[in-house]
Write a protein that binds this DNA or RNA. Structure first.
Lengths: 69, 69
DNA sequence: TTCCATTCGGGTAATTGGGGGA
DNA sequence: GATGTCCCAATTACCCGAATGG
């Protein structure tokens, strides 16, 4: 289970649109290891939709109302 | 592993779907020598599944195992 | 044989990456 | 500490008509 964990891949622009941030910011998240990414042989990044959705759900949830985690 | 080492052959479209890129991009990878390719008598390209999966694994950064927060 | 999706080619826009700095 | 923006070079995406594959 390393490479293709079945799941669609999203481009930096698509992920940026979901989070309403600049694509560069998504790039920094990947660089910081906060989100997994795969690179095309040309160096462009692709993100797993499942992982993006999970991360998106965490941010959508109001953290101030979450005692733990 | 008979005469040709490897298993199934994938079409440009299938490889493109795995990387979430345009089939033309896969063609450029083959032209640039970044990925091995077989040509049909008619000139269409075919790619080895094993090589594609290996390449996919190498370029994958797995953050799923990253600690939370 | 015909039918139709895919993949040739090339050419031209749009995205992306990386560094630097507001 | 985290984002957004500007620069430029590289990579990728969409356009066409014609050919191949099954």
């Amino acid at each position: 289970m390393t490479a293709s964990t079945g799941g669609r891949l999203l481009t930096p622009g698509e992920v940026a649109a979901l989070f309403r941030v600049d694509p560069k910011t998504v790039t920094r998240w990947a660089t910081a290891g906060r989100i997994g990414s795969i690179r095309t042989p040309g160096g462009h990044r692709r993100f797993r939709e499942s992982e993006v959705n999970q991360l998106l759900a965490e941010l959508t949830t109001d953290a101030s109302e979450r005692p733990r985690n």
